[in-house]
Design a binder for these strands. Structure first.
Lengths: 172, 172
DNA sequence: TATTGTTATACTCTATAACTATA
DNA sequence: TATAGTTATAGAGTATAACAATA
């Protein structure tokens, strides 16, 4: 094994176990697990919940709009909507203004499930995930995440001004 | 089921756009992009970097140990090590104490690449990712992530929340 | 009998290309 | 010509099962 390594002053990258990069991945994996476990009893995936919530909030939309908003491919959205329709949670109606498009809307069952079952289940999942935090800390953490995602491209404060402009992603 | 209530008092789950769950996923996706872009010039994936760093820190290990430590399947680890060996960054030596096991170690080229090129590239990637934060905020964010991952199973700890189990782990 | 590394296989997830119907 | 939805297909990525060598 090696080691002619000049053992220079170059610091060894300490990304293991306590590094932000590793921790972020673990936190994300952990939340994914909690999230999927929360919706699995309803025969859904977390992606289904997001789509249902988007329709409930914004109203009936085309499949492409749903796809673009959430960074999902339109061909993938077909099967997502297929599944939700098979479960009777959404329905495909034609958009009278443009008959190429659907207007994907919630059924009454879909809306009821979302508001009475799925919503609480997801809130509970988030609460489980954020259990180590106090209420105030949860708000701070949320603000941190928001800045991490949205404060891109401008000059922050320190560090290399190497901020990169992240493509895509505009969410209101 | 019944369709009656579009206007019940049940609050609509506000998971969209500014929710912690969505933001966490986006932050993770963003960091993944930055990370993969940082190691791609070296013909590597982020997973390769993690494995190299683990060997450099802990020393030669079996493939199973590497796999278990990082939550990767052992059959997947075969191809990861294959790739790293093909690039001349690691070498497979037999463990004399247990000839079933390999002792995967860094070559001098692997160690040099890791310390002089990959390490700085990854630090730079992390710096880009954390650009919106000041130095102090980066430490706070890191502590938040650490608690999220490690402070599991105990009570929510509604107290200060700060300091307790958190080791003085290096925050980088 | 159990474990390490390996291969072959299967499964999941997603993206690409091509088709239709509409615009 | 361009777009919305669909289908078939292909490509990652990863997990499962079985095998040989070793414990």
């Amino acid at each position: 094994m090696s080691a002619d390594s000049p053992s220079t002053d170059v610091p060894l990258p300490d990304f293991l176990s306590s590094s932000t990069s590793i921790l972020l991945g673990k936190a994300n994996d952990l939340f994914d697990e909690i999230l999927e476990a929360a919706v699995e009893p309803f025969g859904l995936r977390s992606k289904d919940f997001i789509v249902l919530t988007a329709i409930d909030s914004i109203g009936p939309q085309s499949q492409q709009q749903l796809a673009r908003t959430h960074g999902i491919d339109r061909t993938t959205m077909v099967s997502v909507v297929d599944g939700l329709e098979r479960l009777g949670l959404v329905q495909r109606a034609r958009n009278p203004d443009d008959r190429r498009k659907y207007a994907i809307g919630l059924t009454s069952e879909g809306q009821a499930l979302l508001r009475h079952k799925l919503g609480p289940a997801m809130l509970n999942a988030l609460d489980t995930f954020l259990a180590p935090f106090t209420h105030d800390e949860r708000e701070i953490f949320n603000k941190f995440l928001w800045r991490l995602v949205h404060e891109r491209g401008q000059a922050p404060d320190q560090g290399t001004g190497q901020g990169r402009v992240v493509p895509g992603g505009t969410v209101r």
